[in-house]
């Protein structure tokens, strides 16, 4: 008997948990709750990008100030970064990730390709559907920021209009009848993507995990190396919001996980998720300069490195709490793709 107890103590808990079956009733609640959360965020991007388009048009007509465009750009960018983790389904099918936010722009494609506008007349320059025919580098928010800085109208209005089109299309593809949300809700036999509830939950959890990787990368890209920092790669640095975007993304990821898995996790586990997230945001807060300045200043690189480490530790902790305990790790399957 003592031997049995000893053996059971030596077997890690998660070996049992990995094989745990999914409680369908709880899974359905999780899926419903996740989709409600995702809809709020997608709707936010839709309305903010619409507003950006309106503001850009007013600015190009000379009716409002550049500062108002700046505020609309920031607001839209923040709402986009919350969607960055959902790079599956509609966002993937619409190629929206690259088109809305061409970043990291390692070869300055935004600036190099913006000249594509020079070859056409003003009617086309102001046409959002024309923007869709151009390089992905000049279709989205980084291009809109550049055009705003250069005070280039009507191109700014057209690019903003294209972002708003994406906002509407992403919303429609997710939430129209028979859209992606319906696919996730109606998992099961005959569903071409999700054959069971676990696959839907894995999709949601994997999105959060991917989002954390992207959050770390948002800091890593401009870090470069000690002798060769790459401050130009700090995202949306011209708006001064590089760190704010990382903050927004981590906040969105934490909220998604809380909303999605609060039915399965114990209160102390939810507390742990919140605490880890807060600790990581504090590490971000310890970076006292804008990111592009911080990575170039030797004494500020350590806080940036600490924040990266903290995000990676968060990813691991979330994996332990949610991925392993709920048996939702991505797995190892020939249907994984390729």
């Amino acid at each position: 008997m003592k031997l049995l107890i000893l053996i059971s103590l030596l077997i890690p808990f998660n070996l049992f948990a990995q094989n745990a079956s999914i409680d369908i009733e709880l899974a359905d609640k999780s899926i419903e709750s996740s989709l409600a959360f995702i809809e709020e965020d997608i709707d936010r991007f839709r309305t903010r990008s619409e507003k950006l388009h309106e503001i850009s048009a007013l600015y190009c007509a000379g009716d409002i100030s550049a500062q108002e465009v700046r505020e609309a750009l920031i607001s839209t960018y923040r709402s986009w970064v919350r969607l960055d983790m959902y790079q599956f389904g509609p966002i993937e099918h619409l190629s929206a990730a690259l088109s809305v936010n061409f970043w990291p722009d390692k070869k300055s494609f935004v600036r190099r390709h913006i000249t594509q506008f020079d070859a056409v007349d003003d009617a086309q320059k102001s046409d959002p559907s024309y923007v869709r025919t151009l390089s992905a580098a000049v279709q989205g928010l980084p291009a809109a920021i550049y055009l705003w800085e250069m005070d280039k109208c009507p191109e700014l209005e057209a690019v903003s209009g294209n972002v708003a089109l994406y906002g509407q299309e992403i919303h429609d593809e997710w939430f129209k009848a028979d859209g992606w949300a319906d696919l996730m809700k109606n998992y099961g036999e005959g569903n071409p993507v999700y054959t069971n509830a676990k696959e839907v939950l894995v999709e949601i959890y994997s999105a959060a995990d991917f989002g954390l990787q992207r959050a770390a990368m948002r800091l890593e890209q401009p870090m470069g190396s000690f002798h060769n920092p790459l401050p130009n790669r700090a995202e949306a640095a011209d708006l001064g919001i590089s760190l704010e975007l990382v903050h927004e993304q981590i906040t969105a990821i934490t909220a998604l996980l809380e909303r999605s898995f609060n039915f399965q996790l114990a209160e102390n586990e939810l507390d742990r998720i919140r605490a880890i997230s807060i600790a990581t945001l504090e590490k971000l807060g310890a970076i006292t300069e804008p990111l592009d300045v911080a990575v170039a200043a030797p004494n500020q690189r350590i806080p940036v490195e600490n924040a990266i480490k903290s995000i990676k530790a968060t990813q691991l902790e979330f994996s332990n709490i949610i991925g392993t305990q709920l048996g939702l790790n991505a797995g190892f399957s020939p249907a994984d793709g390729d």
Binding site: Q87, F88, E92, H93, L94, S95, A97, L98, S99, A136, F210, Q213, G337
Partner: peptide, 8 residues
């Protein structure tokens, strides 16, 4: 990561 960026 493994996301497909140019489906369109």
């Amino acid at each position: 990561e493994r996301k497909k960026l140019n489906i369109q």
